[in-house]
Structure formats: structure tokens, C-alpha cells
Write a protein that binds this DNA or RNA. Structure first.
Lengths: 342, 342
DNA sequence: ACCTTATATTTACGCGCGTAAACTTTTTCC
DNA sequence: GGAAAAAGTTTACGCGCGTAAATATAAGGT
């Protein structure tokens, strides 16, 4: 076993008994060479440690095999989870995922897109910051790079959008909460993205169609530290007795997690049925929602489907040359997850 | 404003009135050219949209400006947070961070190192899986790429290690718990990394030095879904009445979060003082520990310092050619974070 | 103005690979 | 077995940039 390092394809060609252009073909698609040749190459690769220089490989390509994945806030396990799903599918499809987090910061998001552009990725899956996004910069980016938006939509930006059907999912939980107790009050902070707005509107619509009066508690807070906002504003709202009903529907689970902490601290027992002072529900089925005390009733976003469809859509887009005939929007329905909190 | 695209340095040289090699110098270090030249270049860059082809830039470099960051499990906000800190510092220092998560999977960790190697990174910050890591593969990687381990140590692998002083931090909380109530029982699952072992040993040592009898509850479970293990095994342990004392110290916060959920479900009031059935404490000061019900008493790992020192150590390593004279180990002390749960 | 020193320019080559064209060999199939 | 098709080889060029050497120009000090 001669472990002497092979420096380039030329040398590998020499020891494998195959020409360099054939090696080039092999590395770009092992299936494109005859089986006997493939075996010769693989045999040589077993013996000698060689991997192609990816920089040389990519410099003359118009497109690389990279796929960029950009999420707004990775410290939110929801995005970590969806990122993981997307990564896995990209790898399976022979692409190289590169994961980035904007960390809630507009400049960071712009910088990421800037770096991504020079990676010449085959495509990008982008969950934009939303309201804080620099729309023009994202638009410009999408002109150059095939991009599918997910989670948070920006009208007419990117070639497609995949997300949740907030109207359906909020309708679902509003109906459930109204049917089983006092109608819910909607608890929200200033919206970071269109989902928040859609959820509020969906809540109002759902309440009205049930003949109920909508109640929205809008609290202060900014940034992506939703739990903190839910907690501190929850303490304030509860202290000031500003809860119109004993049922709160939070704009998302992270806010609900904060509110649960506030309720606990203020001595309000959260849950449904006799002996409970408050019902709290969320939205998203955040990975931690199963482990709150009490466990959080919520609506599950179908991450797996969102991830799968986003990737699928991107791959179709890539195959068809990067431009969609028309911008497709795919929304997945949520599922009610009944736990102990409401 | 002629927005016609510049295709390469040659063309930029033409319109900026500067030679191509000078441009090359500029892009590798803007400070290395005379101010008047820099201004000419920057002026041209304002007018024309150009960015160097990173693949061409890097193919002849022995080392690139990339820094790899590898964490074992990104859906754990602890790692997301520390990853964010590290990213920020790398960017400030002019490097390009690339973040990867092993997702608790040995193969994935190996594959990441494999991809990283071909990125020719200036250095890598690696938080290994730990017990599940393929030691030989990591060792081999560290021979080729300057690597600093953090969070979880592998003896003699990598050029340095930065982490937490588990003996100090566990000692701290054991002392606190013993002083303020019944001595703690240690609650752990099969260790995924050396920290878990160190913490158990630290617990036993601390108890003995206080003249108390250590009690370890070792539950089943594998993988990185710690909350689930804490919850389901917590339910079992509580149901079977296997808690020797009313105070539980969990090996980490995520386990504690699961156990809190179990205690809640079993109707045990968690907290200190009269009227509470159980005290639960954790370790790490996980981002969500402030928002559990009750909020979790724990020991804070000093993420910021760990991130800072890791990066600092790596940069020193890079500057000194990638090899440390001797392997340095830096451990940061934890701080007691008293909240409501214990 | 002159000399020194710091910067730029010119010229030239190489990196490792993609890829095209023309040609040769192997496989496939009737 | 022979022709067509498929796959591999040879040759050659180019990508965009790093970088070295020789040369030219500008800046700074006296």
C-alpha cells in the first residue's frame, strides 16, 4: 500500500490507468463512466489518498454543487431542525449544503447573500428575516441565483415560496379553543415577519366567523428573543389585569413559552378544566413545547413537508434553468397538537 | 454610472487605472497598498460591480481564509449560541466562518471533516461528538488542519482545548444544594461525552469532601434528545419512588428540562422552601433555562469566554504555523445561577 | 534637486481542473 | 462477424488568480 500522496488528477490518471478527462467525468458523475473504468478508479482511490481540488473544480463552472441555506435565527431550534432536514436532503441529492444564520440582523443577512453569490451556488433556500429584510437586496440576489423562499414570504421575491397555511392553522386552534372554553385572546408582539401579521388577521377572521369578538393584546418588544418578550410583557399584562379572557393564543410557541413562565411566576395555574386559571396555546410545535410545564397545546407546522417541498422545488427550479414560469406558493396545513396547557 | 459587469481583475485593472497584481494585493490586504491607490480602486468598485472569484483566489493558496466550526448538535441552542459568538469573532478577524453540525451522528462528523479538509481552511474549531466520535479520523484530521477543540475534550487530540471546569462548577452547585437543603442526587443518562463523566466524578468527589453519601441515578437513553430522556425516565423514576432525596442535580440543563416536565406531570411541586416537593438543578445555563416553570437553578458555562478564547487560541495557532509547542487546556469556571427550581 | 525607500507596473508562468475536438478502442446488437 | 454506438484517449486551450523578478515610478527626507 503505497500511501504516497497524489497531488492532482494527472497523477491519479497515471496510477489508475485511466485518462485525466475520464477522471474528470468520473468525479462529476461516477455513473457516467463504464463500470470497468469505475472499478479501476475506485481501486486506485482505495490505495491512494486523493480528493479533487474543489477550488479548481469550481472556478470554471457557471454553477457549483453548493446549495445555500439561510435562516433568520439559528438559536431557535425550529430553524435548526428545519435546517437539518434540508441539509440531509441536499446531501442525498449530491449537493453540498452550506448553512448560514442571519442572527436576526439585516446586515448579516445581506452579507450572507453577498458571500453566497460568490459561491456560485446551484440554488439557495432562504428563510428571510422578514420585516427587517432589505427587500431590494434580496430581490437583486434572487435575480442572480435561483432561490426558493421558505417559512417567511416576501411578495413576489424568489422563484417560489413554501410555508405554512396560517389561516388554516390559526382557524383550527381558534375553533378548538372557542369550543372548549372561553374564546381566546390573541397575544402578539410587533411582527418580525409576515407570518405574524397573517396569524393576527387569521385570528380576527376566525373569531368573527364564529360570531365572537376578537381581542388582541399587542405588547412591546423587538428582536428575536421572543421568550423574553413573552415573559416580561406577560408579567406586566397579568399584573395589570389586562387579560380579557382566561384563554390566550400566542402568535408563536416561543412567545407562549415566555408567557407560561410569567403565568407560573404570577401563580396562575395553566391548563384546562377545573382548578386552572388560564389556558395558553401557541403555534409552531416548537421542539421544546413538549417539555414546558404544562406541556404546550399548539399547532404543529409540518416541518418535514416544508423542508422536503422546499428542496424539491429548488431542485426542479435548478433543473429547469433557474427561472420558474410563474411563482409558486405552497402552504402546508397545520395539525392541532393537544397537550396540557389548553 | 456604467453598470456593465466586470468579469475579472484584468478588466477592473483597466477601468481603475491600476495594474492587476496591485489589485491582487489589494484584495488580499487593502492596507498593503498606498492610500491613493486604494482610493482609485475603491472608486472603481463603487462604480462597477465586481467581486473576485473565490475559487480562483483559493486554488493556489496553501491555506484559505476559511475557518470551520463544527458542533455536535445544532438543535441545541447552547451550540447555536456559541456558534454565533465564534462566527462573529471570525468575521471581525477577516475570516470566513463555515458552520457545520454533526447532528449527533458519527458519519456526519466524519463527512464534515472530510469536506472541511478540501476547503483548506486556515483552522477549525471543533466541538466533537465525544464518545461517538471516531477518534482516529479526528486525530488524522488534526494532523492536517490546525484544530482547536472546544466544549468536549478528546485527550491529546487537536492543538488545544477550551472548555468548562466541570470540577469547579459541579462543586459549586453541590455545595450550594447541600448547604440549603437535602444533599443532591445526581441524575444522568449514558454519557455522550467526557463532560458527563467528569461531572459525575466531580459530583461524587464534592459529596465525599462534604462528608455526604453520593447517590447517582443512572437512567437509560441514547442520542441527543436529552429532554425526552429526562422526561420519560423522570416519569419512571418518580413513579417507582426511586428518588433517594428531594434534591436532584441533573448532568445538564436539557435533562433537567425534561425532568421538570416529568415532575410537573406527576404533580410534584418543584422549588425550594416550604410547600415544595422537589428541588431540581441543572448545569450549563441553557438559553431556555430562564423560561422553564419554575425557572431553572443551574451553573452558567461562560460561553462568551469559551468562544473568545477558542477563537483567540486558534488564531495564535494559525499565526505560529499551525502547530502548538504543547497542547494547552483552558477551563473556565462556572457561575452559580440561582433561580426558582432549587 | 538628489538619493533612498516604498510602491506600482510589466511580464511571465503556473495552479488543477473543465471541456472541446478529433481520433481510437471497446461494447452492443442484429 | 460487422457495423453502429458508446466510451475512452490524446491533444490542446482556457479559466481567474497568485506570485516572482525585473523594471519603472512616486514619496519622503535632507
Amino acid at each position: 500500500m503505497d500511501e504516497s500522496k497524489i497531488r492532482n488528477m494527472e497523477e491519479l490518471a497515471a496510477v489508475s490507468g485511466v485518462s485525466r478527462p475520464t477522471l474528470s467525468k468520473f468525479f462529476n458523475d461516477p455513473g457516467s463512466v463504464r463500470e470497468s473504468t469505475r472499478l479501476k478508479i475506485q481501486e486506485a482511490l482505495e490505495e491512494y489518498d486523493y480528493r479533487p481540488n474543489i477550488f479548481a473544480m469550481n472556478q470554471n463552472r457557471r454553477l457549483t454543487k453548493y446549495v445555500g441555506i439561510v435562516v433568520p435565527y439559528l438559536a431557535d431550534p425550529f430553524f435548526a431542525e428545519i435546517g437539518r432536514n434540508i441539509e440531509r436532503r441536499c446531501i442525498q441529492a449530491g449537493f453540498w449544503p452550506a448553512l448560514f444564520s442571519s442572527h436576526g440582523d439585516t446586515h448579516r443577512e445581506n452579507d450572507i447573500l453577498d458571500s453566497l453569490r460568490s459561491l456560485k451556488p446551484a440554488g439557495v433556500l432562504l428563510a428571510p428575516l422578514g420585516r427587517a429584510s432589505d427587500r431590494r437586496i434580496i430581490e437583486k440576489f434572487c435575480e442572480d441565483v435561483p432561490t426558493v423562499l421558505f417559512d417567511s414570504n416576501l411578495d413576489d421575491v424568489g422563484e417560489a415560496f413554501v410555508g405554512s397555511n396560517n389561516f388554516q392553522s390559526i382557524g383550527l386552534i381558534v375553533e378548538y379553543l372557542s369550543r372548549t372554553g372561553e374564546p381566546p385572546t390573541f397575544f402578539e408582539m410587533p411582527p418580525v415577519n409576515p407570518n405574524a401579521n397573517k396569524r393576527r388577521r387569521a385570528y380576527i377572521g376566525a373569531m368573527e366567523s364564529l360570531g365572537l369578538t376578537p381581542n388582541v393584546i399587542h405588547v412591546n418588544g423587538e428582536g428575536w428573543g421572543f421568550e423574553e418578550v413573552g415573559y416580561s410583557e406577560g408579567i406586566r399584562v397579568i399584573s395589570e389585569g389586562r387579560l380579557p379572557t382566561n384563554t390566550i393564543l400566542c402568535s408563536n410557541d416561543r412567545l407562549a413559552i415566555g408567557l407560561l413562565a410569567a403565568a407560573y411566576e404570577k401563580g396562575l395555574r395553566v391548563g384546562r378544566g377545573a382548578g386552572f386559571a388560564l389556558r395558553i396555546a401557541g403555534h409552531d410545535d416548537h421542539p421544546f413545547s413538549r417539555f414546558t410545564s404544562p406541556s404546550l397545546t399548539t399547532v404543529a407546522q409540518d416541518y418535514a413537508s416544508i423542508a422536503e417541498r422546499s428542496v424539491e422545488t429548488l431542485f426542479r427550479l435548478i433543473e429547469s434553468g433557474g427561472k420558474a414560469e410563474k411563482r409558486e406558493t405552497t402552504l402546508f396545513d397545520g395539525k392541532l397538537v393537544m397537550r396540557a396547557s389548553a
